[in-house]
Computed example of a mutant assay.
Amino acid sequence: MKIAFYGSSILSTYWNGAATYYRGLIRALSELGHDITFFEPDVYDRQKHRDLESFDWCKVVIYDGNVHALRSVAAMAARADVVIKASGVGYEDDLLLSEIMKAARPDALKIFWDVDAPATLAEMQSDADHPLRRTLPRLDLVLTYGGGDPVVGAYRALGASACIPIYNALDPIDHHPVLPEPRFEADLAFLGNRLPDREERVDRFFLYPAAQNQDLKFLLGGAGWEDKAMSSNVRYIGHVPATDHNAFNATPKAVLNISRSDMARTGFSPATRVFEAAGARACLITDYWEGIERFLKPGEEVLVARDGKDVADLIGELTPERAEQIGKRALARVIAEHTYAHRAVLVDSIFRNYFDAFKGAMA
């Protein structure tokens, strides 16, 4: 099938955590025979910070951040069997959705793919005239990268005909064990951009434990933390390109996942970092959220903390031997059950079921 996918960026992870998700899913769908074109706007300096250049599993169309260019690429939706508009594209999202819907063929499968369901739902629930809310009944399907039953129910209540979570996963081609690198040495490392709805949780789950464990080394990666107050045992290294994520995860004794506050409240929302870390055979400590056991077994494949004191206690007691065992078990679990190849099989079946039903209705 020909798929037109409109998203933030597949070429750059710069201020764009969804790139890992897009890459894993689209590559896996391509391996199932789909012909995919990804459309991304040239905004937020992402094209200056590319970390993906050479690949043959997807065509990419980059368009300027202006209305004329947007309308030109939206018109290309007419060529596709499956038309996907993702959340958070980053330039005139509402106009892009409207133009794509105008261009898409009547027989095309029209999908909104939400990579930040809690935020998107909050916007629509507070605005009865929200453009996406008005468009939902005309879409065939909503896919989300997390959220479970609460998100499915909320989307159905707002008019979506169907909503199916397609969870984050591991792409073992990109994320895998590597040798440690001295530049990432630490007892506990955290990688995440500074965002308003994450910062308070970073204070509690990372910076507080660091202050309580002055004899341990903590490593902070991600954009935006330059002026953040932190204890002297925290080393800040700025943006970490995707090409360095394996070493960043494989080197420290443990790595930390901190969900954004709305993701933690919603539950069933494993971040890409969870699978990246497991793929690198890292010992992962994650903040608690409902549904974690669906992906990794607490205490055996992942360590779970409900607050900063838990993190301080866990990292203070963690031996290298136990960390290694947890990392090995996590890698085995995600390889067996949670790769993008697994997710792509589900997505492919969703596509094929739609077209089978459409052909049956037309017969």
Rank of each mutant, 00 (worst) to 15 (best):
L121S: 00
K309V: 14
Y91A: 09
A117D: 04
T251Y: 07
V89T: 12
D171P: 00
N353T: 13
Q325S: 09
H239W: 15
T13F: 00
H34C: 07
R50V: 13
E321T: 11
I326C: 08
A108L: 01
R27L: 02
D114T: 01
R138H: 13
K217T: 07
M362H: 13
L219V: 13
A74E: 01
A169H: 00
R329Y: 05
N16R: 04
M1C: 05
L346V: 10
A344W: 00
E199D: 09
V311S: 01
L219H: 12
Y14Q: 05
C283S: 04
N249A: 15
R23G: 03
A363H: 15
N246M: 05
R50T: 14
V234T: 12
A271F: 08
G291D: 08
D93I: 06
F38M: 07
P177M: 03
F206I: 03
P180N: 10
Y236R: 12
T120W: 04
N233Q: 10
Q47I: 14
V302L: 10
A341P: 06
H34W: 05
P41F: 06
E200H: 10
K2V: 10
T266Q: 14
V304F: 00
Q125E: 12
N246F: 00
S261I: 15
A75D: 15
G159L: 12
S161I: 08
E293Y: 08
L191M: 14
T20C: 11
A277Y: 01
V67Q: 11
S161Q: 14
V142K: 03
S12Q: 07
I36N: 01
I164R: 12
R194V: 05
I62N: 11
V115Q: 07
A119W: 06
G222R: 01
D56K: 12
A361K: 14
A103N: 09
L109H: 06
R138D: 10
E199M: 09
M101V: 14
S259W: 02
G238K: 12
S269I: 01
A104G: 04
A162I: 07
W225G: 08
L139Y: 03
V311I: 11
N246E: 00
T319V: 03
F190P: 09
A336Y: 03
V202G: 00
I173F: 08
N246H: 03
C163F: 03
T37Q: 02
I10T: 04
V82Y: 02
I100V: 12
V240Q: 00
H245F: 15
V202N: 00
L314S: 07
R235K: 15
L143N: 01
E300C: 06
N233I: 09
A336D: 09
E301G: 14
G360L: 14
A211S: 13
Q125K: 10
T20A: 14
L191Q: 02
E317V: 05
L284G: 02
R27S: 04
A169E: 04
